[in-house]
């Protein structure tokens, strides 16, 4: 790979990097599903990955990062509450 090719690759649009990250996180979730892993830490990992993925979509795809905080807080707060409650429900089932 020439230096120019490397430069071109690294200068992908930010939204393309976001898309690649979302794809990678989805493939990680599929790997967890295929191996059948479960338990407290795996559930925690999956919930965090769901939170990261949805926040990327909200901030960079929906464009809420460029908008006044109150609009972003509604979505981020919603995601945090829903994920925390899901985590709580799974903690209840594991205990």
């Amino acid at each position: 790979m020439t230096q120019n090719t490397v430069k071109t690759f690294l200068y992908l649009r930010p939204c393309t990097w976001d898309w690649l990250l979302l794809m990678a996180l989805t493939l990680m979730i599929l790997m967890v599903a295929e191996t059948g892993l479960g338990g407290r830490y795996i559930v925690g990992l999956l919930i965090v990955s769901m939170l990261v993925k949805t926040q990327i979509v909200a901030d960079y795809f929906m464009g809420l990062k460029r908008v006044r905080l109150r609009w972003r807080l509604i979505v981020s707060g919603y995601l945090l509450v829903v994920m925390s409650m899901i985590g709580l429900a799974y903690k209840l089932s594991l205990s």
Binding site: I29, A33, V43, L46, I47, M50, V57, V82, Y90
Partner: peptide
Amino acid sequence: MVWIILFPLVYVI
């Protein structure tokens, strides 16, 4: 976004 939550919740966890 809804599917991003729905898939791990229902299929994986």
